Simulated scan of single mutants.
Amino acid sequence: MHFLSKKNVQEFTLIVRIGNKYHSPHHLFTFQQLRCLELQDCLFHPPLGFNGFEKLINLDLVRVTFDPSIFTNLISKSPLLERLRLRCCTNIDILEIDVANLKFYEFIGKTKSISFKNAPMLEKVTMAILGRRLLNDTSPVCSNFPKFFHYMPSLLELDISGAILEYLIKGGLPEGPPTALNNIKSLNISSMSLRNAEVVSSAVYLITSCPKLQDLTLEFYQVSVGDIVEPVVELLRAQSSSSGAVKLQRVKVNMFTGLEMEMEFMKFILASAPVLEEIFIWNCTLYLFRSCKQMIDDMKEFRGASPNVKFTFEEIDMEGGYEHEEDM
């Protein structure tokens, strides 16, 4: 490292494979030409007087321990930063993103509050909360929807978990959707619970508020027959005659079992998307409550806004080690 400190190092990766956390080498903080930094399983503690990496473009931290104030200072002194990934790092009570040149942002971890203060160039956001919930977040007076999306007008791709949906709906849904949703073309919602009417309402609002949405991916939490929640079914039935996903072309659904709540959600999708071309669904055979053919036949009976949707259902047998695919 001492040798490297005398060179114009632009890319540096440190991946620690030992059990205990490894302190990031102090010579790292002398790399003033650094553009790409990737750290994994280590402690990040800059020395006093550290002025950041002013040429840094890409920062990737995985299971890195740091003082949240140090992280905030690092970000504020990286004016050229375009890509930021934080995965399973130190809990950050208040997560604020104020990076003018940021284009890609991924956060997987725990936090109490999320806000984007300044992200005019941000095109892709991936966010998931570990443990499914924000840490002890209290319900705000006003909706979190506009607060979350207000400062990212260039957003094209959004990948969020069900816990983020729970956070967004706190304070209620705004009458008018945030303008940041106007350009989203790809939406991925993972670990979504159909047992929670508020989460389902938030998902429906988000899907129908993206007028340029083309690709939608959904992943449902595993449910059982006894999990059917009548308010959710009623909510989805009320939405099934509405429109909104006017440019949606492709839908992929993971962990689909065929229960009533899931079928009603598909009915809503089919009724909302006049140019829909393809629906791809998959799950493990073990978790299916009905056959692939039966589910596809039922979906084809729904009143769809698009007449020529192709249904593909992939069934994976974990015990037998084979895949079965139905096309209709």
Score class of each variant (00 low, 15 high):
residue 47 P to C: 10
residue 17 R to C: 08
residue 228 I to W: 02
residue 180 A to N: 03
residue 37 L to F: 08
residue 196 N to Y: 13
residue 261 M to R: 01
residue 13 T to F: 14
residue 233 V to D: 10
residue 200 V to M: 14
residue 218 L to P: 02
residue 58 N to K: 05
residue 225 V to E: 14
residue 230 E to R: 10
residue 78 S to R: 01
residue 302 F to V: 03
residue 191 S to C: 10
residue 236 L to Y: 09
residue 9 V to P: 04
residue 209 S to D: 04
residue 178 P to R: 04
residue 39 L to V: 05
residue 73 N to I: 01
residue 235 L to S: 07
residue 156 L to F: 14
residue 123 E to D: 13
residue 194 L to H: 02
residue 327 D to I: 08
residue 39 L to Q: 08
residue 75 I to L: 13
residue 100 A to R: 11
residue 46 P to C: 05
residue 234 E to G: 02
residue 19 G to L: 00
residue 300 K to H: 10
residue 62 V to P: 01
residue 131 G to K: 02
residue 294 Q to R: 02
residue 119 A to S: 13
residue 266 M to T: 12
residue 297 D to Q: 06
residue 172 G to Y: 05
residue 9 V to W: 07
residue 300 K to G: 03
residue 115 S to W: 00
residue 114 I to H: 01
residue 274 P to I: 00
residue 249 Q to R: 14
residue 148 F to H: 06
residue 21 K to N: 05
residue 307 P to E: 04
residue 238 A to D: 15
residue 221 Y to R: 13
residue 80 L to G: 09
residue 145 F to Q: 11
residue 50 F to E: 10
residue 113 S to Q: 07
residue 8 N to V: 02
residue 221 Y to G: 07
residue 261 M to K: 05
residue 37 L to T: 09
residue 304 G to N: 06
residue 253 V to H: 11
residue 147 K to M: 14
residue 260 E to D: 10
residue 140 P to E: 02
residue 248 L to Q: 06
residue 11 E to T: 10
residue 51 N to L: 01
residue 65 T to D: 11
residue 265 F to M: 05
residue 75 I to F: 03
residue 10 Q to H: 04
residue 202 S to L: 02
residue 12 F to R: 08
residue 164 I to T: 14
residue 136 N to H: 03
residue 327 D to Q: 12
residue 13 T to A: 11
residue 289 F to H: 08
residue 216 L to V: 08
residue 54 E to Q: 07
residue 1 M to D: 09
residue 294 Q to G: 01
residue 293 K to P: 00
residue 14 L to V: 11
residue 319 E to N: 15
residue 241 S to Y: 11
residue 232 V to D: 11
residue 169 I to H: 15
residue 33 Q to L: 01
residue 95 L to M: 12
residue 168 L to F: 14
residue 255 M to E: 12
residue 243 S to P: 04
residue 114 I to L: 05
residue 297 D to Y: 05
residue 52 G to I: 00
residue 138 T to I: 03
residue 160 I to T: 05
residue 24 S to A: 15
residue 20 N to C: 02
residue 32 Q to P: 09
residue 150 H to I: 03
residue 291 S to V: 01
residue 140 P to D: 12
residue 24 S to Y: 13
residue 157 E to N: 14
residue 51 N to M: 03
residue 289 F to I: 02
residue 63 R to Y: 08
residue 104 F to P: 03
residue 323 E to D: 12
residue 60 D to Y: 15
residue 267 K to P: 01
residue 228 I to C: 08
residue 311 F to Y: 15
residue 132 R to G: 04
residue 324 H to C: 11
residue 17 R to D: 10
residue 199 V to W: 09
residue 234 E to V: 02
residue 120 P to H: 04
residue 224 S to A: 07
residue 195 R to E: 14
residue 184 I to Y: 15
residue 295 M to R: 08
residue 123 E to G: 15
residue 181 L to T: 11
residue 87 R to M: 02
residue 316 I to C: 09
